[in-house]
């Protein structure tokens, strides 16, 4: 099985070699990854427009209910990371999950959300459970990532897989299949024969 880590927040220094060493086959160090943050839809739309052409992968850091929904309804985004961040609910509902499946926006589970132990961690895991259930029902893609900024925040791929498995869902999809599809898509959109980036000739 090939393991892919797509949301490393620091793609320079010693993080990438270390990630390779502990078992990740591909990391986003070789890809041009852009993390987007926005307060309203206008700002997000502008940022998507500015970055879509050069970036291989666009990741939106969610958390706001309205923006989570907009992100799911935009086919130009690749990943909606941590929709449950700073929220009291899981940040995702059946409408968004269905839209995410239609537009191929992967729901990203960010391991750095679990840093706070105890009650906070329990709530995030409970939100993950709900989100994974929705994703499975509507066939929306989901993936898990360490989101590491520094070396000690990295984790092994099989440990993350085991975490999703122990929540009762497919860890294989989350560390291997869905990230693999995103990489394929990013590579296909770079081919020169395309009409324009991301649009293939018939």
């Amino acid at each position: 099985m090939q393991f892919h880590e797509l949301c490393l927040r620091n793609t320079s220094g010693s993080v990438c070699p270390k990630a390779k060493e502990i078992g990740w086959n591909t990391t986003n160090c070789s890809l041009n990854t852009v993390f987007l943050e926005a307060d309203d839809w206008g700002e997000l739309k502008r940022k998507i427009g500015e970055n879509r052409e050069e970036a291989d992968m666009l990741i939106f850091e969610g958390g706001d209910e309205e923006l989570n929904r907009k992100a799911c309804e935009t086919s130009k985004l690749d990943i909606l990371l941590h929709p449950e961040k700073d929220r009291k609910d899981s940040g995702l509902n059946h409408v968004m999950a269905e839209a995410a499946a239609d537009n191929n926006v992967a729901i990203g589970l960010d391991f750095t959300q679990l840093e706070e132990s105890g009650k906070g961690r329990m709530h995030v895991l409970a939100h993950w459970r709900k989100n994974l259930k929705l994703c499975e029902k509507y066939n929306a893609p989901y993936l898990i990532t360490t989101g590491a900024k520094e070396r000690h925040q990295l984790r092994g791929p099989r440990e993350l897989k085991a975490l999703i498995d122990s929540l009762g869902h497919s860890g294989r999809k989350a560390v291997s299949e869905v990230p693999g599809q995103i990489i394929d898509r990013a590579e296909r959109s770079k081919i020169d024969e395309n009409v324009r980036p991301g649009v293939e000739k018939k």
Partner: peptide, 14 residues
């Protein structure tokens, strides 16, 4: 319980 135990190893940060 191998999977569950393995997942718990991921929570070691220091």
């Amino acid at each position: 319980t191998e999977d569950d135990f393995r997942a718990s190893l991921a929570f070691i940060d220091s």
